[in-house]
């Protein structure tokens, strides 16, 4: 019996150990390395990094840390503008997806079971379809002689084709389009769980449907709203593909800056510094949100 317990414990440790070790080696350690390298400086070699540890002339190990990346990023208005713009674009995109996604999720959750399955599948399907190709689809639609301009010209709304591509408008459009399913899914599961008898009770007590929505439905689905907003906001801040394909040269976003520092300027330490600051921004944001949420729960 004791042997069996021992074997069971060993098995448990093995089952836990494999995924745990994998995540530590391939996820946690890489983030720590990024943090370390953000304190280095570039060097003409492969890899193009000045090692943090080195041996001086007297064989004494030296640790050299440079704060230059951080002072450079913070002192340069370009990087600050990129950070500010990323947050702005992500916030507005999140709000727009929420405004479009909530009524959709509500409608899906309130139709008959048969329709619900079909519509649910229709929300999932774009998620399975290539992100890159869905962003690409808009290049054709928005281009100077594309269908949108053609329709507007024919209708007489405009007299010359609009420059829609490579604008901030195109970036917002691409963001909302790509992230809409991420918003709808958590909202749908929150709304579906809502007990309809609560709304009936509100109606019986003379509450108008619109008021009932704001007083009952909305507060009770706030967790779904929060989950959906985070699922859109966090990846949107670091988005690279959408601003690269749909944005203009002026669309500064942090994901793009990091990409360019890494691939075009080959400045790995600076790219690491940008990554660390982005991460700190996101973690700070999530912590604040969670605190607000838990305070709300306490006060209720």
């Amino acid at each position: 019996m004791r042997d069996q317990v021992k074997a069971w414990r060993l098995g448990r440790r093995l089952i836990l150990g494999i995924p745990y070790a994998w995540l530590i080696v391939f996820f946690l350690v890489p983030l720590l390395i990024v943090f370390g390298i953000s304190f280095s400086t570039p060097k003409l070699s492969m890899p193009p990094i000045e090692p943090l540890l080195s041996y001086g002339a007297d064989q004494v190990m030296q640790v050299r840390l440079y704060a230059s990346n951080y002072t450079f990023i913070i002192g340069d208005s370009l990087y600050l503008a990129a950070f500010a713009n990323s947050v702005k674009v992500a916030l507005i995109s999140t709000l727009l997806t929420l405004l479009i996604g909530y009524p959709m999720a509500y409608g899906i959750a309130r139709t008959s079971a048969q329709w619900r399955n079909i519509l649910f599948l229709l929300v999932i399907l774009p998620f399975f379809t290539s992100f890159l190709l869905r962003v690409y689809a808009w290049i054709g639609l928005l281009s100077r002689n594309g269908p949108i301009n053609a329709i507007l010209l024919k209708m007489g709304v405009i007299h010359a084709p609009l420059a829609l591509l490579q604008t901030d408008f195109a970036v917002y459009l691409g963001m909302v389009y790509s992230y809409l399913p991420f918003m709808i899914l958590p909202l749908y599961s929150a709304i579906e769980k809502l007990d309809p008898s609560l709304l009936e009770a509100a109606a019986d007590l003379g509450c108008r449907p619109i008021k009932a929505f704001f007083r009952v439905t909305l507060p009770l689905t706030s967790e779904g709203i929060l989950a959906g907003c985070l699922l859109v906001f966090i990846p949107a801040v670091g988005e690279y593909v959408i601003p690269a394909l749909l944005g203009g040269p002026g669309t500064l976003m942090i994901g793009r800056v990091l990409w360019d520092e890494f691939f075009n300027n080959r400045d790995w330490p600076l790219a690491s510094g940008v990554a660390v600051l982005t991460l700190m921004l996101l973690v700070g944001f999530v912590v604040v949100l969670q605190r607000v949420q838990s305070e709300k729960v306490v006060s209720e």
């Binding site: 390395i33 990846p235 670091g238």
Partner: peptide, 30 residues
């Protein structure tokens, strides 16, 4: 270590891809 484990299993989903990509590359180089 459960709390860390939960964090490690959810973070890769939301971490911006540019950061995941950069960190992975730096690990492989190291």
């Amino acid at each position: 270590g459960r709390a860390l484990f939960i964090a490690l299993t959810t973070a890769p989903m939301v971490l911006p891809e540019v950061i995941t990509g950069l960190s992975m590359l730096l690990l492989f180089v190291a």
